[in-house]
Amino acid sequence: MNNRLPGLHLKAEDFIPATAEEKESLVIMRDSVNFWRDGLRRLKKNRVAMVSLFFILLIMIFAYVLPSFWPYTYDQQIRTSENLSPFTYGEAELARIEAGEKVFPHICGTDKLGRDFAVRLMMGARISLTVGLVCAAIVLVIGALFGAIAGFAGGWVDNIMMRFTDIIYTIPDILLIIIMAMSLKPALEQLVTHKGFLWLQKLGPNMIAIFLVFALIYWVGMARITRSQVLILKESEYVTAARALGAGSARIIRKHLLTNCIGTLTVTTTLQIPSAIFTESYLSFLGIGVQVPMPSLGSLATDAVKGMNTYPYLLLFPAILISVIILVFNLFGDGLRDAFDPKLKD
């Protein structure tokens, strides 16, 4: 008889189990592109951002790794080697070379106290980077939490919290920073002599004052950005779903809202780093930055201003280094924003 039903065109072989080959062709070859992978792919294509990232890593090695291998330390004063220009040696060192010893060259010269300037630059970069990173972290924690709570709570809580940030926003920051740095310094100097606070001594009171100021003033921008993101996100279905499953507010903020604005948070935090370095070098230049003999790039530049006609390289090196650090962080932050900020997606 007829083994085909009219009109249906069914064949017997259609019902044979699929071979391994056929199954293979149906498996999705590529993993689905998630947020991070998508962003990273775009970041990798951005040549400027990748070069900046390379420089950031280079500067990090220069600041955090190299000083431990360097034959000089940042506060070591070498007699008769004061005010050397790059690649020259002092009297005592020349005598040692005569005697057949090997003396490591002063690549960037020495300062007026006979300290190797290259290692001081590294320490300076270390201080500046640390200030930048710690301040950005402080701003991120305070700003993101404050903004997320305000946005999530809504209503009068949001209103009061946002009016509070409005007031802080209008306060001229540099004025307050200078007054605070000056007035907190003696109080902190007393604090570090007490037991239990000795670890603070290593940082120096000025540095803590800078951190405090950032914690008090600079988080406002971050809070505003986070709040606006949370306002949008909290209306989404997965938040309703989480709520329906019985999740509390704290869990929703932590697990759903903050993780979903992580792109924006990363970008804003990265761009905060150069601005903190900028502020620190500015304060150091006014003489209220980190403690001597600790160098920061700003204080190295200040010290060099007095002798700049005779020893211009002492000014040039820290000046270039600050500018390069701020430049690469800015460029990298811009690249991150292009890659991760969905609003700017083409």
Binding site: P274, F278, S281, Y282, F285, G298, A301, V305, M308, N309, P312, L315, A319, I322, S323, V324, I326, L327, N330, L331
Partner: peptide, 22 residues
């Protein structure tokens, strides 16, 4: 413009002072 944003004002003033002033 990108370089201009990265240079703090005290550095540009000092560099100006050194080149054009002294």
């Amino acid at each position: 413009a990108t370089c201009g944003i990265a240079i703090p004002s005290f550095i540009s003033s000092v560099v100006l002072l050194y080149t054009f002033g002294s």
